[in-house]
Amino acid sequence: MSFLEESWEEREENSYKQIFGDTGQGIFPLSNEILDRLNAKSIDPRWLTHGVFKCPPTEQRNTWAYVTSGMSNPWETEEPEEYSGLGVEFLMETENEEIWAIEVLLTLMGYNLLLANGQMGDFPSLDYGHRVPLALSESIKTMMFVHPVNFPSNFSIKSGSVDLLQVVGITPSELEVAKKTSSEEIKERLVSNTGGLVTSKERESVV
Score class of each variant (00 low, 15 high):
S205I: 04
F151I: 01
N39P: 02
V191G: 07
G26K: 06
M109C: 12
E103S: 13
R11M: 05
V132E: 10
S173H: 02
M71W: 00
D163E: 14
V162Q: 08
I186E: 01
K187S: 07
P172L: 12
E12S: 14
F151V: 01
N14Y: 00
Q119L: 05
E138N: 15
E78D: 14
D44I: 01
E89Q: 08
F53S: 08
H50E: 12
V52I: 15
E12Y: 00
T181L: 11
E98C: 09
G110P: 05
F3K: 10
T142P: 02
R189L: 11
P124L: 03
K158N: 10
E13H: 08
L105K: 03
R131M: 14
M109S: 09
Y66W: 07
R203Y: 14
P45G: 04
E5D: 11
D163F: 08
V207R: 06
S72T: 02
Q18W: 10
G21C: 06
E184S: 04
S182Y: 06
T58I: 07
F90D: 05
Y16Q: 01
A65F: 03
W47L: 09
N150E: 14
V191W: 07
N62K: 14
L126E: 02
T194Y: 14
F3A: 05
G129L: 03
Q119R: 07
S173G: 11
T107Q: 06
F151L: 12
Y111R: 01
N32A: 01
N96W: 09
N112E: 14
P133T: 12
T77K: 12
S182L: 05
